[in-house]
Design a binder for these strands. Structure first.
Lengths: 240, 240
DNA sequence: TGGTCTATTGTTGTTTACAAACAACAGTTT
DNA sequence: AAACTGTTGTTTGTAAACAACAATAGACCA
């Protein structure tokens, strides 16, 4: 009898389409696949050594996440971002985070708060050189994900996950190209987020809402200036 | 040479998975498939006369819409609703509609407002007997969809579509079983919604937000009483 | 009698092959 | 030269067969 594949205690439950989805997402977020790029199912299937089935499934999921756009009979391309997208994403984010922090004030457990603090801890242990845009933006999204988790609101969390992917897709890239961010913003990230944990712990709903709104507004302002400088075409970026 | 299939000017662009998705969605919303019911791909494929491919695709889409729940290696079942779901859905809806009406005040065009009024017109032309829970709830969701469309916010609209499917899935059923709704609510629906159009036309953002919040709260209250009376099991409703 | 292990069965995940749709190009006609 | 039509090539949509997994029922042993 054949041996079971080793070392896959939990991973054995992962299915090919999961792997493809995660790999593709990483490739898009890291800009290995540039925005606007055409993705042919066959090509990708050959490259990843799987059949088209899982590829199709992965592309559909990423379409839902907003990282690729699928057109009927025309295939998929990597999504690209312009100023309109930024406005949409951050207005959505603001509305969602307000709801999230409201529910978090009501529903957050001790372990929820601990999870958020743990992320702040990891940050504080990083040396100044380790506080790269890539790493801090990852921690940033993780912290906010922990916040949404603390809300205990399944649909809200799902909606956030979609938004998170999109934010991630342009944030790493945007921050990496912003010279000022390293001196001004990255060192201040920790203290900025610590207040959230306290506010939630003390269930100060109104203060929480105000703070979140200002927080997201500042985030938008940082990203916005960058996108005004470097507008990107919405469609038809490269022929293939 | 074979003739092309006739009478399919637009429909020819529809693809099998679209048809399956729409049919399934209708079946779920109309409660032909009861909540909790298991859906086997093979069975459905045989029944609809297509292969499993389009079925799988449709089930994935409906999972995204929240009308079915897919578990790995375990298949899909029709989603079921309890009080927690209602709280989640209506809190999300409130947050989204506030954002929608804000953006609508900024971005609504004349034709957007006309589209909303057109729906109110259809309602006003219905006789009292035609104002059934099914019909009015359909118009209600169409009106709010027109409102979201007037916001011109692609991501917001997509998120609303997901929520709308879920609301639709329990609203028709809930209203149909509510004796009081016919006398009190249905005749008042038109006037209640007319104010929204005026508020948007006059760009009264603050008033708009307050009005929407109260509106959704009342909607929740109507649905809530019903779900407290008749709690439904969340999982494992029927064995198959 | 009860529990665990194994085998069976039904279902989903994946692959492969085929059909249909779209896009680009060439040839013909006006 | 411009526009139409037909052809060819590439890519997606669909079908059907195969493989892997999960649940269940039955056998075996304590």
């Amino acid at each position: 009898m054949a041996l079971k594949p080793l070392g896959l205690g939990l991973a054995s439950r992962r299915v090919l389409s999961d792997v493809v989805t995660d790999d593709l997402r990483d490739a898009i977020i890291s800009h290995d696949l540039e925005p606007g790029r055409r993705i042919a199912e066959d090509e990708l299937a050959l490259q990843m050594g799987v059949s088209r089935g899982p590829i199709r499934e992965a592309l559909m999921r990423l379409d839902r996440e907003g990282l690729v756009t699928i057109e009927r009979h025309k295939g998929a391309r990597v999504a690209s971002w312009d100023d309109t997208d930024i406005q949409e994403i951050y207005s959505m984010r603001s509305a969602l985070e307000v709801l999230a922090i409201e529910w978090a004030c009501k529903n957050a457990t001790a372990s929820d708060l601990k999870a958020m603090e743990e992320i702040l801890n990891i940050y504080s242990k990083l040396s100044e050189k380790q506080r790269t845009p890539r790493e801090v933006s990852r921690l940033d999204l993780e912290f906010h994900t922990a916040l949404f988790a603390a809300a205990h609101h399944a649909r809200l969390f799902k909606t956030w996950e979609v938004l998170r992917s999109q934010i991630h897709a342009f944030l790493v890239y945007t921050w990496s190209q912003d010279g000022k961010i390293n001196k001004v913003f990255l060192p201040q990230w920790g203290p900025d987020h610590k207040v959230f944990v306290e506010i939630i712990r003390n269930k100060q709903v109104e203060k929480a809402k105000e703070t979140v709104i200002r927080h997201i507004e500042r985030g938008l302002a940082r990203v916005e200036t960058h996108f005004i400088e470097e507008p990107k075409p919405k469609k038809k970026v490269t022929k293939r």
